[in-house]
Design a protein around this nucleic acid. Structure first.
Lengths: 353, 353
DNA sequence: TAGAGCCTGGACAACGTTGTCAGATCCGGG
DNA sequence: CCCGGATCTGACAACGTTGTCCAGGCTCTA
């Protein structure tokens, strides 16, 4: 996207000038200590070859002036920023907290800082963010894709920016990605309901253009087909996430001509709303949700879920990223992490007609 | 802390060399397009004074080479990084997700990126992080303090780094801070329990060296004193957060010589564990928690909480930060945001002896 | 047609740091 | 007394960008 480059929209321009308030530089320290510039550099970086006496003088000057090395300049000189970028969908989503935290821990272990931003599920914003991070020369990127075309990253990949896609695969480029087994997890979850006697099972999920949603839908269909149950259209609700519409969808499939006796919820937000709807029903309806939710065990009945391990996903992704940077890793791979069915009651309810 | 400056511990050193894979520079673009360096800069920044024909040639070269401006160099030249740092306690804590997101939104509105890190409640790590961010010359810092001495930031403040403390006040320096009314909220919550007939009320909270914990404890004591109820030591458990110890504490105060009939939980993690403990009791014990928790309304009984508005706190803090950068804001202030008591059932249970 | 004024483009320095290299100092031994 | 070597120190260029300033070519008018 040339626009991103052509138009002068750099954020810094909008901020008042002030060049961060004239901080002291190594030159200032050198002048005050009565030594050369390079000697200060040596002291600051703990390089050998400085007499204790000189070092003391320099250190004094540093403390007196409140000098702090300017890492921007250092980066410019050295070529590595020791920071990685994380583009996720929404920091406020409880699924991404632990993921983000796991990435941070790995980054920290490698001495890198984490710069992050939310795409809000908007492909343009994802691209804008990813490119902004590249412009800052992050050493690597962890991306939870919002869009499905990532060719805009080709020059970056070629330039050696380590990149790992998470939660959803990269679009139209060959890159590392770390996913949950969405298909298998959903299939198992639905099969679990079938095993408990359900045949009319509803599915509420996100837009199928989102990879995870599509895979989970596929898992649902597969489980139904394996059991020889034809799926009715009225049992499926796709592209629905905001609470009111989930509510409508759930109420719809509970009251149609062939009402469902169980619901499979395609993600944590859907699950929460469905729980609310089911709590209002007199009839007991079974529920299995994709993604674990806090306190799921304290509800009555406890909520059976297909859990993904967000921390493990983040950790795996970040570790691969640093192995790319090491040079240990060359060929992009697609890694699928298993999910885990946690039974707590709601998924084991028998069908009630 | 001189060490942070003296020793050569810069993260970049640990990563393999490779100077981000030889990315093309403006010079390369200029050579390819057959124009001068500055002309490329003009095109890239949308500055006037370039013929359409020249611009086209430059643009072609940019696309062909996959050029991306190096913002590190730009930063070095311009003096502003258009990024702000966020030091929080734990990204995985559900309280900080929305807070962080709110800060990000404001930053984005001002065209700035967000760099963040978790201190894990460790003062040294907080300092290390904050100083690392300053070394990168972030324009501003939002800090959720882990320590209680922030004099290490004095040179930064003097140098014009905008700084706002959040959730807990700054220690030993004069700086902006945005807090919840922890004292008032806790007092109201406990008063609520008292109003429902309770007299033996337990308090489980974090270490009083943490400001929020201390304030909430103070609120608890104030409410009790207002009601003329002497507090017994066995009713209070301080410095306890990990689940097992919270469990022990709760069970202890429920079974002692003068067992409590209600518990005030000092933060969300404590609340969750207490809910688990109470679910196992035969006797019904009232509960009010500080911080809202998801699904609190679906439990039986619903959980009454003193809610803070994490998003509002984050937004307020970030807005103040950018007003500092504008120069609109000079004098540091302490802002306390009100809390809100949300009654859902658990706090309205009558005492059961 | 000459001069003034405008438009376009480029040379150059500067931002603050680090790497290279050579100069200065000091020591002991021949 | 001088020299070799070890040790310490500093001058200088470079990283990739932007700001300043000037040159050259054009148009327009007198």
């Amino acid at each position: 996207m040339p626009e991103a480059i052509r138009r002068s929209d750099h954020p810094a321009d909008r901020l008042a000038g002030a060049r961060y308030g004239n901080r002291p530089t190594m030159k200032d320290v050198a002048a005050r200590a009565g030594v050369g510039l390079k000697t200060v550099s040596r002291v600051v970086n703990g390089e050998p070859g400085v007499t204790p006496e000189t070092e003391r003088r320099v250190q004094e000057a540093i403390d007196a002036l409140g000098f702090r090395r300017n890492d921007s300049a250092r980066v410019l000189r050295k070529g590595r920023t020791a920071s990685i970028g994380l583009v996720l969908e929404d920091l406020a989503d409880p699924f991404y907290g632990p993921l983000s935290r796991a990435v941070e821990e790995v980054a920290r272990a490698h001495g890198a800082l984490l710069i992050n931003g939310s795409s809000a599920e908007d492909p343009d914003r994802e691209q804008e963010l990813a490119l902004a991070l590249c412009a800052r020369r992050v050493d690597g990127l962890v991306i939870i894709p919002a869009g499905d075309d990532h060719r805009y990253l080709e020059p970056e990949l070629k330039a050696g920016v380590a990149t790992v896609f998470v939660d959803r695969p990269a679009g139209k480029i060959d890159a590392d990605c770390v996913l949950s087994d969405n298909y298998g997890g959903a299939r198992d979850g639905v099969a679990h309901l079938i095993a408990h006697g359900h045949r009319r099972i509803g599915f509420i999920g996100d837009m199928p253009r989102i990879h995870t949603a599509a895979e989970r839908l596929r898992g649902y269909r597969a489980a139904m087909e394996d059991a020889g149950i034809p799926v009715e259209d009225s049992w499926m609700s796709l592209g629905v996430t905001d609470p009111q519409r989930v509510r409508d969808a759930a109420e719809g499939m509970l009251s149609g001509p062939s009402p469902v006796t169980a619901i499979f919820a395609g993600n944590n937000r859907v699950t929460v709303t469905v729980i609310r709807v089911l709590a209002e029903q007199t009839r007991r309806v079974a529920l299995v949700g994709f993604d674990d939710i806090e306190l799921a065990d304290l509800l009555e009945p406890g909520v059976t879920v297909v859990a993904q391990d967000a921390a493990a996903i983040g950790r795996t992704a970040a570790e691969r990223l640093f192995r790319q940077l090491d040079g240990t890793l060359i060929t992009p791979e697609r890694i699928e992490l298993p999910t885990r069915l946690i039974t707590r009651g709601s998924g084991e309810l028998p069908p009630a007609d």
